[in-house]
Design a protein around this nucleic acid. Structure first.
Length: 560
RNA sequence: UGCCCGAUGGUGUAACGGUAGCACAACAGACUCUGAAUCUGUUUGUCUAGGUUCAAAUCCUAGUCGGGCAACCA
């Protein structure tokens, strides 16, 4: 599906519908979308799907996308959340230009709409208590009953509503309801509440208002005011669409098209604001930007790039099917980018000494390491070598397993960029049985890691020179939950039982000198280990802290 | 048990009445100074039953299964 001015519009059912609208002329060819977060929490990867959809559609169809805060519940909303949301959308790479709006900016006009609705006999002030309200509403399978207030004279409703805003009544004493159909099979049409009294101070309007519009009332009017063409929301609002349409028609207002799509579910994590808030509030994680979290702030702190997240959102598609996306796809997206871009360095995460017996004590030399084999334009760097090195503890086995082609007694292995070495022995701590040191000899003829005699060396391992290495803090992040679908639980079981206690492991690694020179915010590949991000908050000059973004794929076995 | 929505390999998605394709994952092989990357190949799919049609993943009906809806939340 394409339009003349947008030759490469990716197809999904929403874009298809927009193309139809453009063909039929329903919106005169305009395309205006909006991303409407409630500022009551931090944005997560699920919101990224919506952001990419809304801003992506605007870009594809040469329209525009507004950022609008749906701030109609002062009890839950805070400026901190507004700031974090603005920051996150910007970081993701989207620009709303001058189109930053707040539903609270429309309070005056929304209030006027309520007055108008009353005047038209399509809304009334109801004095039922909350309990009575529920009782009168009925249940989905049984019709409700009409409130005694339903036929309150218009003048009286007008008077009451005005006095609700004047602060004359207590919260809960009255509500304003749309007069629709108490027998509707759609419960949302059973005279829904559209305004309630709240004495709470609002983060933007302070105490100016004593009545606040409900979502259904505020949202459609806000969309209408902004001349939105396509009001895209998640599946749970499907049953609200008749109300959305009814309200705007009752007010004779311009009506956008609401379209619902399935929200993102990701394996091994949770994407519910309530659960995320619980993890933060109860200190199961260090904060909203904890790198274990699927929040955009967390992914950012972990080292995920905005482009990888955008690619992910493109790849998952948009449908009405409520499925579960494999987090492996997200991981693939960031690996794909970092494989192309990230410089390679050597760091030993679990160091053990390797002593080269026939290498002169005082000798040292440097080897040239390729920064990025995928992009040789990134050049090379020098890495120092000496008699005592650190290698990865798991790269040595006293009794090598089948198909293990790293170091073992009597075996040869290549030290990346340096020499071929042959293991001559090792020492063990008598008490613990732990290996404390490995010994080997090197073959001077293999300088640079080459084999002039043509001999094949299957294993190549990374290393650092003990005398030149710097110990650095490395934070090994893993999936937050141990279960693919942590929310799939028997009745009454808390989702936190599935929390992965190994989702964060803090270690001291030995890194090559090159690494200490890099600045906070840089992303690198530790050869054979994974991609790491220099934590911009906790790193200090000369003392970087590394966050593991994601491991390298490993077809041998579980690597650290 | 009322209403709304949905169902294509393990996962996500395409095919808009005409050869079921792509990506991730998994597995196998090639290559490799990263057990990475790259390349090649393989396994696995239209929820069920009817109907319409020369032809159905696609249209119709019924069923099954899954999700949503009964905040003065969004």
């Amino acid at each position: 599906m394409t339009t003349p001015e947008t030759p490469e519009v990716p197809a999904d059912f929403i874009r298809d519908m927009i193309v139809e609208h453009n063909t039929s002329g329903r919106f005169g060819g305009r395309v205006v979308t909006r991303f409407p977060p409630e500022p009551n929490g931090y944005l997560h990867i699920g919101h990224a799907k919506s952001i990419c959809l809304n801003f992506g559609i605007a870009a594809d169809f040469v329209g525009r996308c507004h950022l609008r805060f749906d701030d109609t519940n002062p009890e839950k909303e805070e400026q901190e959340y507004v700031d974090s949301i603005i920051d996150a959308v910007r970081w993701l790479g989207f620009d709303w230009g001058s189109h930053l709006y707040y539903a609270s900016d429309y309070y005056g006009r929304i209030y006027d709409c309520a007055i108008e609705l009353i005047k038209r006999g399509k809304a009334y002030v109801c004095s039922l208590t909350t309990e009575e309200f529920k009782e009168y509403r009925g249940v989905p399978s049984r019709p409700g009953r009409e409130s005694p207030s339903r036929n309150r004279p218009i003048a009286e409703s007008l008077d009451l509503f005005t006095r609700m805003q004047a602060g004359e009544f207590a919260e809960g004493q009255y509500v304003l309801r749309a007069k629709i159909d108490m027998a509707s099979p759609n419960v949302h049409l059973r005279d829904p509440v559209i305004y309630r009294i709240k004495k709470e101070s609002h983060h933007r309007t302070g105490t100016q208002w004593r009545v606040y519009p409900m979502y259904d009332f505020a949202h459609c009017i806000s969309d209408s005011i902004e001349q939105i063409t396509h009001s895209i929301c998640t599946l749970e609002f499907e049953v609200h669409r008749p109300l959305y349409d009814w309200l705007l028609e009752a007010l004779d207002l311009y009506r956008p098209q609401q379209i619902e799509f399935a929200r993102l579910n990701l394996t091994y994590t949770v994407l519910s604001k309530r659960k995320l808030l619980e993890l933060v509030r109860d200190h199961h994680v260090s904060g909203w930007d904890d790198p274990r979290l699927p929040t955009l702030a967390g992914l950012r702190r972990r080292g995920y790039t905005p482009t990888s997240i955008r690619h992910f959102c493109k790849r998952i598609g948009v449908t009405k099917f409520d499925g579960y996306t494999d987090v492996a796809l997200l991981e693939f997206c960031v690996r794909e980018e970092l494989n192309r871009d990230a410089p390679r360095v050597m760091a030993v995460l679990d160091p053990i000494r390797l002593v080269i017996e026939n290498y002169p004590e005082e000798q040292q030399e440097t080897f040239e390491a390729v920064n990025n084999p995928e992009n040789t334009a990134q050049g090379t760097h020098l890495t120092p070598f000496s008699k005592v090195l650190y290698i990865e503890r798991e790269d040595f086995q006293t009794d090598p397993a089948a198909k293990f082609f790293r170091l073992a007694p009597g075996r040869e292995v290549r030290l990346r960029y340096a020499y071929i070495v042959k293991c001559t022995g090792f020492s063990r701590d008598a008490a613990t049985g732990q290996i404390t040191e490995i010994r080997c000899t090197y073959d001077p003829a293999t300088r640079g890691g080459n084999t002039p005699d043509g001999r094949k060396i299957k294993g190549t391992i990374h290393w650092v020179s003990a005398a030149h290495a710097t110990p650095c803090e490395v934070r090994l992040y893993d999936r937050l939950f141990t279960h693919e679908r942590p929310e799939d639980l028997p009745e009454g079981v808390d989702f936190k039982v599935n929390l992965n206690s190994a989702a964060l492991e803090i270690i001291k690694a030995q890194v090559e000198p090159e690494l200490v020179r890099l600045e906070g915010g840089a992303r690198v590949q530790f050869e054979r280990k994974g991609y790491f991000y220099i934590d911009p908050v906790d790193s200090r000059p000369g003392a970087p802290v590394f966050n593991r973004i994601v491991t390298l794929r490993d077809s041998f076995g579980k690597n650290l």
